[in-house]
């Protein structure tokens, strides 16, 4: 399933530099989202906050959890989960919004 190159990468080590930069980025995004929530209280707040949270989740997934280095299969199942959750939400809201 895995090509030789991927096989080598999956067991590799994430450097300290990368980890520290990611950590700082996560802290920055946390600060950003709190700041946005403080100044922006209209409807767009929901979307912006979810987007920032997803960026943070992406950093954790791809760097800390090393999804960047894993085989395609792992990323595909992440996609599958996101699609599934979206489908559930969309179909439920078809009921809730039009009831």
């Amino acid at each position: 399933m895995l090509s030789m190159k991927e096989k080598k990468d999956t067991s590799g080590t994430t450097g300290h530099g990368t980890l520290i930069v990611t950590w700082l980025a996560l802290l920055f995004l946390t600060g950003l989202t709190v700041w946005i929530a403080g100044v922006n209280t209209d409807r767009h707040g929901v979307a912006i906050n979810i987007i920032v949270a997803s960026m943070k989740a992406g950093l954790v997934l791809f760097v800390f959890m090393r999804l960047k280095y894993e085989s395609l299969f792992f990323r595909l199942i992440l996609l599958l989960i996101v699609v599934t959750l979206t489908a559930i939400m969309a179909l439920t809201f078809l009921d809730v919004l039009y009831r």
Binding site: A37, A53, V60
Partner: peptide, 19 residues
């Protein structure tokens, strides 16, 4: 543990920030 972190990353804005 990272997953537990991700769950919180979403819980935090939904519960504390969105008004």
């Amino acid at each position: 543990w990272h997953f537990v972190d991700i769950a919180w990353i979403y819980l935090f804005p939904l519960l504390y920030l969105l008004r």
